[in-house]
Amino acid sequence: MKKKNIEFVVGLFLIASILSFAWLSIKLGDIELFSKSTYSVSARFTSISGLKEGAVVELAGVRIGKVTHIALDREEYEAIIHMEIDSDIALQEDTMAAIRTAGVIGDKFVNITPGGADELITNNGEIEETESAISLEELVSKYIFESE
């Protein structure tokens, strides 16, 4: 009876804490057990300042994917980002990608504005129209110097 009791309590402890672990890693750590099917899209920016791998891709404010890889094009001196987009989201050829900031000091994310073309972007396709990150400092200095 005494031994059974110990085993029960230990079992309870293990289950409770493993559940906590599962919640932490799946919900917060973005570990995907049943990974959704996605397709890959790339985009070029003149500057992505502050965007990180793993950043969110949003369309109309809803999360539709994430940034998987960031690289530099050594000939054009441009940033290339690769994104994984949920496969049930279709993007038109003239879709526009922009880098935005959540709030004034929040995280950078990629904002997608849908286009109107008939053709869709396929797997490993590229979003042609992009708008680079707006840097607060640049805006401020532009304002100051232009007003002079």
Binding site: I6, E7, V9, V10, L12, F13, A16, S17
Partner: peptide
Amino acid sequence: IIKQLHFIGAKSV
């Protein structure tokens, strides 16, 4: 090991 898990782990919960 179970006995120690009980002592170190479960009893600390």
